[in-house]
Nucleic acid binder design. Structure first.
Lengths: 248, 248
DNA sequence: GCAAAAGTGTTCGAAATACACCCATGT
DNA sequence: ACATGGGTGTATTTCGAACACTTTTGC
């Protein structure tokens, strides 16, 4: 079809050229220190320009043949060893000039960031300190200035975490295998804030739902009556999957 | 620091090269035909390879200096004219080999799709038929086979729409300026399915919330008692913003 | 008058809220 | 023994589901 081709060419001449991208993946990795009731996020110190010696979210550029999610898992496994984790895509930040390299190398290459949101168990997460890379859990209450637009990404991740917590059982991905109901309650209050119902009501509602299994094992934390250790029963939770369950 | 430099080089040699990307933006544009109670999605016919003569989501590749959202608005405005609309980012699909061009041109260029989700008012949306481009509203109940992974993207968008509808006032972006409570009810049932409370309860709950303004104007649709036309009062809704409001 | 659609009201039971109270342990 | 945290029970109120009933129109 010659006529059709002509149209395409005319259009191509009118339009500005396509942008070339490198695609980065940045992870917002949360965990909760139940002992100290702090919500933590994993940060790494940059050792290259740009933003040399700034803290940043652990990230990487996507390689040939690698899917976005693969890349997300790759950085994660380079930084910490975990038994299991929760991971989902967050958001894609892609405005021009969000990365200073775009200006400097003037090839017109854009840097786009697909962010992922992850939850790991604090007790099981073993940081991989390779001696060169600074890496640390930071309390979200005391964040430093981060590289790029990472503060924005982190804020977005934090919002997602709060939402998730209300209507999905992500909490049990963050807690240790067994936990007391108070651990669970503390987790909700530290992440969501004090806007919360009574402990006894929280407790009653959750137990009635029936996906928490009482192991019978008691644990004593200093003074006071020992608490039962509970376990999340994934099978018993199944019927609630995708239902608008809210345990506010 | 020479030692530091050496480490970088060694790593670079071990690692597979970075992928180069073109970034596409694909829009899932919904509207609701209140007259026929159908949920519609905007599709365009492709006139180039790959997937010549397949229906697809309206999309484009991102140009130099253009943000992702700009690109989303650009395609949208090339296809339809609307007064106002709701737009938000959906998800980023980026596995290797999701686009057949990746294989064929063998430059190792990857195609990544950032999808956007849009809602427009059916009555106000004027399709721009340029004679060449086939473009049409398709009922989501009767979708054809789409190009690329667009069926998957569309399914994802549909799920998001259902969720949005339950806890945010997007419905009023899709309805005309004034509407009857029945219009609203029909909208919810057509999108969410019949899993729904009674009309009278739905009605009572919404009116109690107090952000629907009764214009007093009555409109008669065939037989039966004429209905009041209502208006969404954005200011009165403000206090509910970001609250876990659900009008199921 | 009768059907059809809009709009109102009533009843009933389930859940959320706010407590008061009992239980088991460390010191 | 008493302070501390764990755990249970109960009265009150709010809210949603179901459904009966009234009102206003077209035919």
């Amino acid at each position: 079809m010659p006529g059709h081709n002509k149209i395409k060419i005319v259009h191509a001449l009118k339009q500005p050229p396509l942008a070339d991208f490198k695609v980065g993946v940045d992870n917002v990795i949360f965990s909760v220190d139940t002992a100290q009731n702090r919500l933590l996020v994993l940060l790494v110190m940059r050792h290259q320009e740009p933003f040399l010696n700034s803290w940043s979210l652990p990230g990487t550029l996507v390689r040939q043949g690698e899917s976005l999610e693969d890349a997300a898992y790759r950085i994660l496994s380079e930084k910490i060893r975990v038994k299991n984790l929760y991971l989902e895509q967050l958001y894609t930040f892609g405005g021009p000039s969000r990365d200073p390299r775009e200006a400097s190398d003037s090839y017109g290459v854009r840097y786009l960031s697909v962010s992922y949101f992850a939850l790991v168990r604090f007790e099981e997460a073993e940081l991989i300190a390779d001696g060169v890379t600074g890496i640390a859990w930071y309390p979200v209450k005391q964040l430093p200035q981060l590289a790029f637009d990472h503060n924005k990404i982190l804020a977005y991740g934090h919002r997602r975490l709060r939402n998730k917590l209300e209507y999905s059982p992500v909490a049990f991905e963050v807690l240790p295998e067994v936990f007391t109901l108070n651990d669970l309650y503390q987790l909700y209050t530290t992440v969501l804030g004090e806007i919360f119902s009574d402990y006894s009501n929280f407790r009653a509602r959750l137990l009635k739902l029936g996906f928490l299994y009482d192991t019978g094992i008691k644990v004593s934390r200093g003074a006071g009556r020992p608490a039962s250790l509970y376990k999340f029963d994934a099978e018993a939770f199944a019927p609630f999957k995708d239902k608008p369950l809210v345990f506010l």
